[in-house]
Computed example of a mutant assay.
Amino acid sequence: MLIERDPNGDFILDSTELAERFGLSQADLRRHMRHGSIVSSVEIGTAEHAGTKRVSLRLGNRLWRAVLNDENEVQHEEMTILRRNTPGQPPR
């Protein structure tokens, strides 16, 4: 996946590839983005992870994460399906 940075330092992800990761059409991905149902975060690596970044996007119970190197190249990515907590079970 191609990940770039804009002049403000924000990450820019390819919408076609992102839609594929979530199993959506581009139209559905755009609809979710307009409604604010895709939540993103970026974590900056420290200590032994210095120079790396972890980009996370969540839509409902689906969480896509990518670890980037200092050149913003994807080194690892994964899609996780989050399970609901069962009453009496600790949160995940």
Rank of each mutant, 00 (worst) to 15 (best):
R65W: 06
Q26F: 01
L13Q: 09
T16K: 08
Q89W: 09
S41W: 11
N85L: 13
G51K: 11
P7M: 05
A27F: 02
S56C: 12
L2Y: 06
R30G: 02
W64H: 14
R34Y: 00
P91R: 04
L68H: 09
D6I: 05
L18H: 01
T52W: 09
E48L: 10
A19W: 05
E48Y: 06
H49F: 14
G9Q: 04
A66P: 05
I44G: 12
H32P: 00
W64C: 13
R62E: 12
F11H: 10
D70Q: 09
V39N: 08
M1R: 12
A50R: 06
R84H: 14
V74T: 15
E48R: 03
P90Y: 07
Q26V: 00
S37D: 00
V74M: 13
H49Q: 11
S15C: 00
D28G: 00
E78S: 15
E4V: 08
M1S: 14
E73F: 13
G51S: 09
K53F: 11
G60V: 01
A27L: 01
R21L: 11
L29C: 00
N8T: 10
V55T: 09
V39A: 08
D28W: 02
E17S: 13
H32A: 00
Q26W: 04
E20K: 15
R62M: 15
G45N: 04
P90T: 05
G60R: 03
L59Y: 01
R92E: 04
L24T: 01
L24M: 08
S37T: 03
L2M: 05
I12C: 03
P90M: 10
L24S: 02
L68F: 08
S40F: 04
R83Q: 09
Q75F: 12
